[in-house]
C-alpha cells in the first residue's frame, strides 16, 4: 500500500515479540503435527493400503507449510506492527504482506483490555485490545508498562471525547 502517507510515525512494538511468536508458532506446529499426523498415521495403519492414503497427510502437510511460511513472515510482521496516537484517534498498522491500517477514534472506545499470558510475561509483552461498538482492534507485544500506560491514556481520552454510539 504505497499510497499510505509516509510522514506518520508509528511506534514499533517490542522486538521480543518475534521470539515469543516464533516459540508460539513452534509449539503450535508440534501440537498440530502430532494431532493431524498421528491421526493420519493411525488411519493409514488401520485401513487397507492404497494410493489414497496419501490424501490423509494433506492436513498435516498444509499445517506444516502454514507454520513454516509463518516462521519467515513473523519477523516482518513484528517490524511492521505499530501504533500512532494522534490527536483524535489511534492508528494501528499491521500485516507484512496484506497490510492493514485501522483508525479508532478515542471517543468511540467502549473498553480497553490488557492481556498477558505466562510466556508473554517472561518476555515482558502485553496485548492491548480496543473495542468499539462495532469492531475490535489489537496491538500485540507492548512492554507491560507501556501497555498499561496506553490503556489508561486511551480510557482517559475516551472519556474526555466520549461520543457514544
Amino acid at each position: 500500500m504505497k499510497d499510505f502517507p509516509h510522514h506518520l510515525q508509528f511506534r514499533p512494538v517490542r522486538r521480543q515479540l518475534t521470539t515469543y511468536r516464533q516459540i508460539h508458532n513452534a509449539i503450535s506446529l508440534v501440537i498440530n503435527i502430532v494431532i493431524f499426523g498421528g491421526a493420519a498415521v493411525l488411519t493409514g495403519y488401520l485401513s487397507e493400503p492404497g494410493w489414497w492414503q496419501l490424501l490423509l497427510y494433506i492436513p498435516a502437510a498444509w499445517i506444516l507449510i502454514h507454520h513454516v511460511v509463518k516462521m519467515f513472515i513473523i519477523p516482518r510482521q513484528v517490524r511492521i506492527h505499530g501504533w500512532a496516537e494522534q490527536a483524535d484517534d489511534i492508528l494501528i498498522r499491521s500485516g507484512a504482506i496484506f497490510r492493514k491500517y485501522q483508525a479508532v477514534p478515542y471517543g468511540r472506545l467502549q473498553f480497553v483490555v490488557v492481556t498477558q499470558g505466562p510466556l508473554q510475561r517472561k518476555y515482558d509483552l502485553a496485548d492491548v485490545s480496543i473495542t468499539t461498538a462495532g469492531s475490535k482492534a489489537e496491538i500485540l507485544g507492548l512492554p507491560t508498562i507501556e501497555a498499561t500506560r496506553l490503556r489508561d491514556d486511551l480510557s482517559a481520552r475516551g472519556y474526555a471525547r466520549l461520543a457514544g454510539l
Binding site: M1, F4, G95, I97, F98, R99, K100, Y101, Q102, A103, V104, P105, R108, T132, A133, G134, S135, A137, A163, L165
Partner: peptide, 15 residues
C-alpha cells in the same frame, strides 16, 4: 458520524 472504526487493508485480490 456513525462510523465507529475505519480500516483500510489489502486482500489477496488487491495484491
Amino acid at each position: 458520524e456513525r462510523i465507529q472504526q475505519s480500516t483500510v487493508h489489502q486482500s489477496l485480490s488487491d495484491k
